[in-house]
Each structure stands twice: as structure tokens, then as C-alpha cells.
Computed example of a mutant assay.
Amino acid sequence: MESDLRIAGTNSRPDIVAWAASEDGKVVPWVVIEIKSGASSSKPEFVLPQVAQYASTLGTADNYVVMGTKWFKADRSFRRLEPVSGPTPPPFGSHGEVDDPAVVEPLLTNWLASLTREMAPRELPVGLPTLEGFSVTNEAYWRAAMRAIADTTSRSGFAQHSSSPLIAALVARLIGNRLEGLVLDPFSGVGSFLWAVADRVRGAMERGESPPNVRLLGVELEERTAAIARAIGEIAGVPTDIVAGDAFRVELPMSSAIVTAPPVGMRLPQPYELLNGRVTTDMDLAAVDLSLRHLEEGGRAVILLPRSFVYRSSGDAYREYLANEFRVGALIGTPRGAVPGTSFAGVVLVIDKGDAPGETFVGQAADDDWQVQLGVEGALTKAAVDHLDGFSEIWS
């Protein structure tokens, strides 16, 4: 298996890493192979320090250097290379249980890349790839899928369907103590916000806590993206349904919480009547309104929007309506670059339905350390949760 494992603290990675079963039946990195050619092939020992570093990091048992057609095996001290005919078969076999996400991540990253290429055929079947002959734990599949999404988020053609893992985690965190029942994302894309909610539930289960009774529902306009999200939802560990369709046309259920990031820079093809009686084709206003219409009393909506939402004159009347009729609990500004695939600065809007209007927490993450401030344990995140729910030490 070709390696995508980059060694921490360096810009290098092994040419090949092969996995095999350990004595306890777990699949682990077993072999490192460095392949050299040209002038460097005359002195294979020069490669030993690099191979030793890989072995120390990965914990591989057998380590090889290939020079042209010749194989060499490093001794345990990494001081010399012994000529061999080829790699030694692993003593415990090559099949076992995979519980390391790093083993599965390249497979899922390539799977996502193949499905999100502009020229990918629309009839391409969508389903999570498997490692034939291996039993992969749900946790390994899940963590690998989350890493693959994060890795693919920055690529053109995919960023519009996904969100930064950090922003997604922030949105899930801001649900606070309202996390119960159905959580809806009417513009779900590949499901980034829903998966962050699933992570909160999974984290509670891992800590032996009693997680809330949560179900996830995503609505995505693009069929292929919905199919990708549906495949990932099968391993979420939380009951999940992904529907392909237009959120403004499908029948949406009432929900306990809503997390979403509507499409950026779009206008509706037909006028939409807002709750305050006014009509608009502004996607941001309509998306917020749609969310509130399908939010139960006592529920919370957490919505990522362009920052212009808070000052556009065309939205003055509707923002005043929100402030008078709902509890606008928080407005948290994100800097440019925080939303993949865009150059706009964003704002996370938190609205509680059924609560009396009150003070709004307003915060702006600094450009230079926004990832720290908006992390799950970041100062800005904790301050916002304190304001929303009166405490910050909720399970995350």
C-alpha cells in the first residue's frame, strides 16, 4: 500500500508502508520500504538514518531499502543493511482488525476525490469503499472519513459542499444544551455540520455518559453530494437520513435544532415570503426564515452566513423582526478564509425560538489566531456558550 503518511516535524514520507497483523490481531504498520535509484544507489547505507526515523515514528518491524532491483534489510540498530531476496512474510499474517484511521484514510480520500471530480460520470455508484480481507472498526472508518473530508474540503468543486472541521465543531458546540431529538441541516452538502453533531454524541458515549436521543436529517440539492453524505451517514453511529432535494420545496419536519450554512451568493428564482410578511429573493434571509419556520419551540438554530447579513440595508426590517420576536443569542464573526472555497468573512448566528428577546453575545475572532479562539475549548467559544446556556462545561 503506497503511503500517505507524512512524518511529523518533517516534509518527508516513506515511499511504501505495508500493514500486517500484529500478535494481538490488530493491523499495524509492519514494513517501510524506501526506493532509491540513480547515483544514490551506489551507497544504500546513506538511506539508513531516514529509514530509522520512519521506523521510530511508525513502529514498523521490518524496514527495507530497494536500490534498482536489489533489496536490503536494515538491522535492528539501523547501522547496516543486509542483502535479501525480498521482504519477509509477516509472522502473524496480513489479515486482521483495522483500528487505525491512517490505514483507511488514503482509501477514503481517493474515493472522495474520484466522486468530486468535475468529469466524474454521474452514474458512478456511491458507497463507502472497503478494505477487502480486513475487518475495519467503526471508529477507524469514522475518523478516516472525517479526515478525508477535511483533506478534500480545500479542493475546488468540493469546498462548496463542505465546511471547515473547526467551524463545524463550533456550530455543533453552540447547540449547547438544546441538543435533543431531530437535528436538521436543510442545506447539508456533504454533511459537515451533521457529522460534527454526531461527534458530540459519539464523544458522550465514549466517556460513558448518557447521550441525548438524537437523529440527524440533511437535505442536499445535488444528488451526488447527497449520496456521498448518505454513505458517510451509515457509519455515523447516530440515526441519519439524507434527502436529495430543494429545501424550499421538500416537506421539512419540525426540528429540535437546526445547523446549516446556506449557499453563498445566490438568489432565489422565485420570491419568498418571510415571517414578517415581506418578500425577498435573498438566499440568506430566506434560509434563516426557512430554518425558523421548522424549528420547534424551545429549539435552537445555529447558522453560518456571510458577515454582510448583519449590515445589508435590504435586511434591516427582517433583522429588527428577529430581534423583537426571537432570542438572538449570539453573533460570532469569523475572518476571511475560515470558510473553505470562499473569500468572505462569515458570521455564526445563534437564534433560540420561544425564548424572550434578550442581550446578544457579539464576538469577533482575530485573523491571526481564530482557530484557537473558535476551537471547542477556545476562549471565544466558551464565552459564547456561557452566555447562551449559563455554563461552558457541557460535554462536547
Results as ranks from 00 to 15, higher is better:
residue 3 S to N: 01
residue 11 N to C: 07
residue 11 N to H: 13
residue 13 R to S: 10
residue 19 W to C: 12
residue 20 A to T: 05
residue 30 W to L: 02
residue 32 V to T: 09
residue 32 V to Y: 11
residue 44 P to H: 03
residue 44 P to S: 02
residue 46 F to M: 05
residue 49 P to S: 04
residue 49 P to H: 07
residue 54 Y to R: 00
residue 55 A to L: 08
residue 57 T to D: 13
residue 57 T to Y: 15
residue 65 V to H: 05
residue 66 V to T: 02
residue 73 K to Y: 13
residue 82 E to D: 13
residue 82 E to Q: 05
residue 87 P to I: 13
residue 87 P to N: 05
residue 97 E to C: 06
residue 100 D to H: 09
residue 102 A to H: 14
residue 108 L to N: 12
residue 111 W to L: 11
residue 120 A to V: 11
residue 124 L to F: 15
residue 130 T to C: 01
residue 131 L to D: 01
residue 132 E to I: 00
residue 146 M to P: 08
residue 147 R to D: 15
residue 151 D to Q: 15
residue 151 D to L: 13
residue 153 T to Y: 15
residue 155 R to L: 10
residue 157 G to D: 09
residue 158 F to M: 05
residue 161 H to Y: 11
residue 162 S to K: 03
residue 165 P to R: 00
residue 167 I to T: 04
residue 172 A to Y: 01
residue 173 R to D: 07
residue 178 R to F: 10
residue 191 G to N: 11
residue 198 A to G: 09
residue 205 M to G: 11
residue 206 E to V: 10
residue 217 L to Q: 04
residue 224 R to D: 06
residue 225 T to R: 01
residue 228 I to W: 02
residue 241 D to G: 00
residue 243 V to P: 02
residue 248 F to T: 06
residue 254 M to G: 08
residue 256 S to A: 07
residue 256 S to D: 15
residue 267 R to A: 11
residue 270 Q to R: 14
residue 272 Y to N: 05
residue 275 L to W: 14
residue 276 N to E: 13
residue 277 G to E: 11
residue 278 R to F: 15
residue 291 S to Y: 14
residue 293 R to Y: 14
residue 301 A to Y: 06
residue 301 A to N: 01
residue 310 V to G: 04
residue 311 Y to V: 00
residue 312 R to F: 12
residue 314 S to G: 08
residue 314 S to H: 12
residue 322 L to A: 08
residue 323 A to G: 04
residue 326 F to P: 00
residue 327 R to H: 09
residue 334 T to Q: 01
residue 357 P to M: 08
residue 360 T to E: 14
residue 362 V to M: 12
residue 367 D to L: 10
residue 377 E to H: 08
residue 381 T to S: 07
residue 385 V to R: 01
residue 388 L to I: 03
